[in-house]
Design a protein around this nucleic acid. Structure first.
Length: 456
RNA sequence: GGCCUGGUGGCAGAGUGGUCAUGCAGCGGCCUGCAAAGCCGCGUACGCCGGUUCGAUUCCGACCUAGGCCUCCA
């Protein structure tokens, strides 16, 4: 089944074909590790995790890189504020990032390059750019010469004239063109820095991704992804740098951008301060519901966070897990779970996860109605492609079990069973009320009474 | 101001030139000791105004409106 993906560069959905089917390359702009990430930051990693899963079904060797930016001014600021080295800051938040991503069911990328491990490549790329006239050194800085790259603005659909007219760019005396951007900048002795031909300094923001892509994946990669807010200037600058450094070679063949997560209709962002940290949300809500919530909208559209939305996602998963719970356990076939065609088709259509989730609902209905192990396997297989439904159903339905006393619940249910046997329904209902007050919902069935945690 | 996206039923959110999205919530019924779960059924959804068309939520244009980027940002 062919995969079609929207390409921000051409503004069209195009049939995807990798340059080398034996080695598909994908790069996602990762976090700058100076703080915990918020749920909006997790949208890209979740969405492109699904893409990676899909690509792996189609190609034998997918190399997926998601970087860690561990040198940046905000890291410096955090380190100075706490009076510690930048390594202390970056280690702490890299670790937290791994925890958060794992919590959301994201498969670790194949490669996780660190910017500080590529300083040599960054310096070398600067030297190349200077040597071929695409960059120049000035006052300890190295700047990219935008005028040397006529295609500048092709990705974001703007031209340098507009940028200057907008007067939003930093006008620095050492710039030849106000739109020129920094590739390398000097560090004061109290800041992290590396020796370079231009003195002790540190990389500018955009160059690290270019250097890491080339070092880890090659000069031309198949897919470069990130949030739509990175489209300009970050990705535009990456294209200019990489293409200029590599003799005009195409940098990334597909550019993919996920829409923003909004909160009360506004983009969730650190600068607006309206953020919800993944680290906190994982404690407040079932992690899988967070993942489902992020997949409920198409990745290119904005998606609004709300308490109601997370409740809806939780309820949906309740229903699916009840189906799985009520069906006999199955052996996973040696070839892996079957992947339902309709779900794969939805994902192949520019990662239409809402459509895929609608199909998953259909599969849940089928499994419930037929009660067959085949139908259960297909439901699980569809869930697996999306990174959902892979936990033990009882563990899901009794989530927070450590918060409630399972033995106590079982004891109450036994008392209720005895009361019902004696047709003492007043007593039985009183026990049920007590359980309800504990946040437990019960179901009387043919095989006895089952319980699960109510919402949340 | 420039460049982009959107406006779908109570909420979320796909999609399509001419029967059905889907989920959550709600209502009625069945089932149940009563519930829960499940099952059956229900609600005249496509911002506004024009145009194209036999027919438009879907195509075109104007308008209104929301959001994103243009500065750090996933």
């Amino acid at each position: 089944m062919p995969i079609s993906l929207y390409n921000s560069l051409t503004r069209r959905t195009e049939p995807f074909a990798p340059l080398d089917p034996q080695r598909v390359t994908m790069y996602l702009c990762g976090p700058t590790v100076y703080n915990y990430v918020h749920i909006g930051n997790a949208r890209g990693p979740v969405v492109f995790d699904v893409l990676a899963r899909l690509l792996r079904r189609h190609y034998p060797n997918v190399v997926y890189a998601r970087n860690i930016t561990d040198v940046e001014d905000k890291i410096n600021a955090a380190a100075q504020r706490e009076g510690v080295s930048i390594g202390t800051i970056t280690d702490r938040y890299t670790h937290a990032y791994h925890e958060d991503m794992a919590g959301l069911g994201i498969v670790p990328p194949d490669l996780e390059p660190h910017a500080t491990a590529h300083i040599g490549e960054i310096i070398a790329m600067n030297e190349t750019l200077i040597a071929n006239g695409h960059a120049y050194a000035a006052e300890g800085h190295v700047l990219f010469n935008v005028d040397s790259y006529p295609a500048y603005g092709a990705l974001s659909g703007r031209d340098t004239e507009e940028l200057i007219a907008g007067a939003r760019v930093e006008i620095a005396p050492y710039k030849k063109n106000p739109a020129d951007f920094v590739l390398w900048k000097p560090s004061t002795p109290d800041l992290a820095g590396w020796d370079s031909p231009w003195g002790r300094g540190r990389p500018g923001w955009h160059i690290e991704c270019s250097a890491m892509c080339a070092a880890q994946l090659g000069e031309t990669i198949d897919i470069h992804a990130g949030g739509v807010d990175l489209l300009f200037p970050h990705h535009e600058n990456e294209i200019a740098q990489s293409t200029s450094a590599h003799g005009g070679k195409t940098f990334a063949r597909w550019w993919m951008h996920n829409g923003m997560l909004t909160f009360d209709g506004r983009k969730m962002s650190k600068s607006l301060g309206n953020v919800l940290l993944v680290h906190e949300l994982l404690k407040l809500h079932p992690p899988e519901a967070l993942r489902l919530l992020l997949l409920r909208g198409h990745y290119r559209q904005p998606l609004d966070w709300s308490e109601n939305a997370i409740q809806q996602a939780t309820s949906t998963l309740d229903g699916w897990y009840r189906v799985l719970r009520d069906l006999a356990p199955i052996d996973i076939p040696s070839g892996g779970l079957p992947v339902p065609e309709r779900i794969e088709a939805a994902l192949c259509d520019d990662l239409n996860t809402p459509q895929a989730l609608a199909e998953l609902s259909q599969l849940a209905d089928k499994a419930r109605h037929s009660g067959s192990s085949e139908a259960k396997a297909v439901l699980l297989g569809g869930g697996a492609l999306l990174g959902l439904l892979q936990q033990d159903p009882d563990a899901w339905l009794k989530r927070g079990e450590n918060a409630v006393d399972a033995a106590h619940v079982d004891d109450l249910l036994e008392q209720r069973r005895v009361a019902r046997g004696a047709r003492d329904f007043a007593r039985a209902d009183a026990i049920r009320d007590e359980l309800t007050a504990m946040g437990i919902v019960i179901e009387d069935g043919a095989q006895g009474t089952r319980w699960s945690v109510l919402k949340g």
